[in-house]
Design a protein around this nucleic acid. Structure first.
Lengths: 139, 139
DNA sequence: TTCTCTGCAAATGGTTTGCATTGAC
DNA sequence: GTCAATGCAAACCATTTGCAGAGAA
């Protein structure tokens, strides 16, 4: 997905971030990954091009990308994972394959369905995720 | 909540688990905590009665209690937290106060509302959580 | 040239493990 | 008395930090 990659780099440049070769590689991982990736996977990918690449660079940039809203972080039991935000402006939930960690958008949002919070509870956010096994993993 | 405590101990005994003094203390923490607790908080509580209490005992027992279904684990950004299951047989979601980590049950379950998964996606589970600030924390 | 970003190395914090001892049944 | 649970210490793993040097603007 060349265009995804270019869009990501453009978005980073628009934020005034310096485009290093390592950052381009990180953007590349997210542009072709259809789901959640582990920090470890990102590190081993950029290590192919940069044998001396360090973990702290990976983590620093993941935090940066979360901060500027290009990627999102999910906390699974087995560890923290990240994925590219499909469309930063659109509110979405996901079907998540627990085998390959690919995600499939889910239009339905439960928060718009007449939920009544307890007395004087101010709703700030919510999480809705559906887990399962996708067709490709079902074998 | 004496009865919560006793019920928890009974449930543990029913599983054939040996009732040590440390385990009674851990059960006590959950019986009076209205929300999520950190392993660190559990450790410091049982340390009041057992100055030499160790972290590994806390973690071992948390895993045990999750395994037998008495408590549930949630992965927050700031760390892993645990809470007593209200009713092991009832399916519930929660309003979660991000300030005090107390929880309020939420009857609505989005999964029963005509969600259509992608082609041959087998749904195995789901997560629905609403975050906000509760009345007591609003000041 | 300037100032951010990187790699290194070391520190950190949470969690797990092996093993000898303690203690519940 | 037996076997499971504890405490200790050390290992482990993911993540973060300080700092000097490299590299983007």
């Amino acid at each position: 997905m060349e265009d995804k990659w270019e869009n990501m780099i453009k978005a980073m440049e628009a934020k005034g971030i310096r485009m290093t070769a390592q950052r381009k590689m990180i953007a590349k991982v997210f542009s072709f990954s259809a789901g959640f990736v582990l920090p470890r996977q990102i590190h081993s990918f950029i290590s192919e091009s940069f044998p001396g690449a360090s973990y702290d660079t990976v983590y620093r940039n993941l935090r940066l990308l979360v901060d500027i809203g290009l990627i999102e972080q999910f906390n699974f039991n087995e560890g923290v994972r990240f994925k590219l935000k499909v469309n930063p402006d659109q509110h979405l939930h996901y079907f998540i394959c627990t085998s390959c960690h690919r995600t499939y958008p889910l239009e339905f949002c439960p928060i718009e369905n007449g939920i009544k919070p307890p007395e004087s509870f101010k709703v700030m956010g919510h999480k809705f995720e559906v887990y399962g096994i996708c067709g490709d993993c079902a074998d």
